[in-house]
């Protein structure tokens, strides 16, 4: 090994001796040996730099001071506190979205037709209502030649009533609701 040892390698040599190859280099290289000795001397100096020990009561005073200052701190917010506004907005959005999805679709023209199972036809298609309306308006006042409608209906036999109902029904094309 001809190149000088790197600073990293020199630290390894200083701390743990390094590899035999590195030691051989240090033994044969005056520059690296000098650097190593200087670092050793620096480490020896550093070991002499004790920190003066404070008085015995200092540590308790330090602890109390820290405790007092922490007690004076404003209450700490939860680490998730910043999410609260976001969560509130998200909740509102979700509620709105659910209400929109769950609501029946807006009425369309075809939806105005009653379903097949309905017992009542649409008002405009109900011929029976048209007839009753005519009676109310007097347009059909004489259709029974002077007899009242009530008397006419009351006088019908069961068969005649059924025949009247059948006659009032309007046949619709297949598939029409």
């Amino acid at each position: 090994m001809s190149a000088h040892l790197s600073d990293q390698t020199m630290t390894d040599v200083l701390e743990s001796g390094g590899s035999p190859i590195e030691w051989a280099h240090v033994a044969s290289c005056a520059a690296c040996r000098s650097r190593l000795e200087e670092a050793r001397a620096g480490r020896e100096l550093a070991s002499k730099a004790e920190v003066p020990e404070p008085p015995g009561l200092y540590w308790e005073a330090l602890r109390r001071n820290v405790s007092r200052r922490i007690a004076e701190e404003p209450p700490r917010r939860s680490r998730w506190a910043w999410l609260a506004p976001l969560a509130a907005v998200t909740a509102v959005v979700v509620v709105i979205a659910v209400s929109l999805v769950g609501r029946p679709p807006a009425p369309s023209e075809s939806a105005l037709l009653l379903p097949a199972w309905s017992a009542l036809p649409p008002v405009e298609d109900d011929d029976g209502l048209a007839m009753v309306g005519g009676l109310a308006d007097g347009e059909l006042a004489n259709w029974d030649e002077g007899r009242g409608l009530g008397a006419f209906v009351a006088g019908l036999s069961d068969e005649e009533s059924e025949a009247l109902v059948a006659a009032l029904r309007v046949e619709r094309p297949e598939g029409e609701l």
């Binding site: 990293q8 670092a39 050793r40 001397a41 620096g42 480490r43 100096l45 550093a46």
Partner: peptide, 13 residues
């Protein structure tokens, strides 16, 4: 490691 080596040498100096 490099900083430590420099630091020790510089401390000595």
């Amino acid at each position: 490691k490099a900083n430590l080596f420099h630091a020790l040498g510089n401390l000595r100096k």
